[in-house]
Every structure is written in structure tokens, then in C-alpha cells.
Simulated scan of single mutants.
Amino acid sequence: MGYVDAHTHAVFREIITDELLNFAINEWHAPRELLLMSVKEFVKILDDSEIEYIGVMAHPSRKLGVAKEDYALKVIDAVKDYADRFAVIGGVEANELTVEEVRYWLGRQYEAGISAIKVHPPHMWLKPNAYRPEEGGLKQLGLVYQFAEDHGLPVYIHTGTSAFSKARNKYGDPIFVDDVAVDFPRLTILMSHVGRPNWVPTAFQLIRIRRNIYADLSSIPPKRLLEYIPRLTEISEKSVYGSDYPGPGVYDIKANLKEFLNIQIPREDLIKIASDNPKKILKPLSRTR
């Protein structure tokens, strides 16, 4: 059985910058050795963990001082020799770019082979529905969703709080994702972190009632997952496993998966969430070319 970790922030020696290294150590509290592995060394860990491939977040975070739109291209170039083991999630900061710049970077990233797009409201400082007239009419953000819908790319949207020092958590309320689901009905939305810890009931209900919203379970400790989402089996058809490695507290990608697979729900639901569902939604780099 090949599992899929659909949400990681894996970094590699080939691409890490001093800014990203310092951020990961100071904000993630990640051990330095996890941040300086080569891609080849990391693939060996995936093999040992029975993980077929992972999703790597490579979206811009200029407000955190760690990445811009070209970061996705650098990640793709770094992992290209193992294209079947990585899905690269790109993105743009719509409120930092012109319409023309958004089109340019989405096109560049798509041509390079991104598997999905990430929108991170607390780190980008914008509402997920900021494209709507009553929310400011940010055309650039509407273009992001339209591009993803037209090109068959899923969009991850962070919901819930972020502990990072420059995060603006007022933007983490999942209710704003509802507009996106309604306005872009052909778009597959992965609601990252299911609104934890403040807004889990809202996120859960939206996942239940909106056909195109799925649960990305990353960053919730597996041993506490049923505390947060006691009715998880009701959305097992619409949930994907993710570790958030090497984010805060998640420093062993194999152990996190093992802990998830020991959750007391039916085995068939675990397989859906950690293998079947992510393979349908998130394609590795090799399958996007």
C-alpha cells in the first residue's frame, strides 16, 4: 500500500535559503538536520515510511520573509529526478501583484508542473473571498480561482489559526471559503486544517454540505483527531491525510503516518483518507507533465 501525505512543508538542502532556514528553526522549531537533507536522502525516508508521494507547499510567503512566486519553480527543479514522489503546490500572493503579474506567475508555475495552488489567508493577509465586490473586489484573487478551475488544479485554503508571529488570524475563519465553493462550483477546494482549533464545527459543516469542499486533516495531531472531528467517518469520502511536516511538533513523517493509521475508525476509512482520496485529487509531478 502506497500512502500519500498531501500536506507537507518539506525543504531540501538544494533549495533552502538562510531566510527559510532561520524561519523554520525559529518559528517551526524544526531540528536543523531535517531542513538540510538532500532530495535523495528524503526519498529514502519516504521509502521507509511506505509513502508513495507527498505534497510540498511551495507558495509565496513574502510577509513572513521566506518565499516569493519563483519558489515553486525552484522546488520543481530540485525534485524533478523523483517526479513520481512529489506533488508541488504553488501559488501567488494576489494582493501583492498586478493582474498581469498574477497571470504570468500562474502560467509559469503551471507550465513547470504544479499539482495544486495554495491560498494562505492568515499569512497573505486577505480573506479567501476578497475577490467579491462586497469584500473589496480583488480581481487578482478571482483570477487565481478561475485559473485553477479552468486548468483542473485543486486549491488548498488555510483555515484556522497560525501561531507564526506575523500571522493575522482574523482571516482564518472558514466561513469565507463558502463563497469560493459557490462561485467556483467546478473547483476542488481542500480546506486545510479544518478550521482548527477555533472553527472546526463551521469547517465540518461546510465540508458536509458543499460538494466541492474537502477536508485536509494536516496539523491536527492524529491522536487528537477524533477529539476535533468525532464524526470523521461521515466525511471519510471527502478527507485527505496530511502531516504538516516539519511544522511545529511534526518532526517525524513516518511516526505521524503510523499514528494516523492507528486511529480507531474502520480500516477502509483510513485507506480512503491516506491513499485513495489524495490520489484522486492531488497528482504527483510526473503525472502533470
Rank of each mutant, 00 (worst) to 15 (best):
K223V: 10
T161I: 15
T233H: 07
I281E: 02
F12I: 06
K280I: 11
F42S: 02
Y214A: 06
N95Q: 03
D244P: 06
K40S: 13
K170T: 08
E41G: 07
D269Q: 07
W125R: 14
R208I: 15
M124F: 05
M124S: 10
W105Y: 14
D269E: 15
S165K: 14
D48H: 13
V43E: 05
E19D: 15
E50W: 10
R208L: 15
R168C: 02
G142T: 09
A10N: 05
E135A: 13
N169G: 04
D84V: 00
E27Y: 06
E19H: 13
E259Q: 14
V102K: 04
L46K: 05
R132Q: 09
A94V: 11
L261P: 09
T288D: 00
L187E: 09
G195Q: 03
E259L: 11
A78L: 14
A112S: 07
L34Q: 07
F204D: 07
I157R: 12
K139Y: 01
L46P: 07
G152R: 08
A30C: 15
A67Y: 09
P122L: 02
E111L: 12
L190H: 07
A116I: 05
V43I: 10
N22W: 00
V182A: 10
I235K: 03
L206I: 01
E227F: 14
I117V: 14
L34G: 05
N26E: 14
E33R: 13
S115Q: 10
H7L: 14
E33Y: 15
Y145I: 12
R287T: 01
K166A: 02
N22R: 15
S162N: 15
Q109Y: 04
V66A: 02
P221L: 04
I271C: 00
P154T: 04
L138N: 01
L190A: 06
G160Y: 12
Y228V: 14
N277P: 09
D150Y: 05
E111I: 13
I76L: 12
L36F: 05
I16C: 07
S165H: 11
P197N: 08
D276C: 00
K258C: 00
P185H: 08
P201M: 12
L153H: 12
A72T: 04
G242A: 09
Y171Q: 06
A203Y: 11
E93H: 00
N262H: 12
R231K: 13
F86Y: 14
V92Y: 02
A163V: 14
L138P: 09
L138R: 00
F42R: 02
I271R: 08
F42E: 03
V119Y: 06
W105C: 01
D70A: 02
K283T: 03
S38A: 01
R208M: 15
I207S: 01
D252G: 11
K63S: 02
P121R: 11
I54W: 13
L187D: 07
P221I: 01
F12A: 04
K127Q: 13
V182T: 13
E268W: 11
L190G: 05
V250L: 10
E14L: 10
W199L: 11
E234H: 09
V119S: 03
E52I: 00
E27C: 04
A83V: 00
E19R: 15
H59M: 08
I16T: 06
G55H: 10
H193V: 03
R132I: 12
S61R: 09
F23Y: 15
S192F: 06
R224E: 15
L64K: 07
A181N: 09
L20R: 12
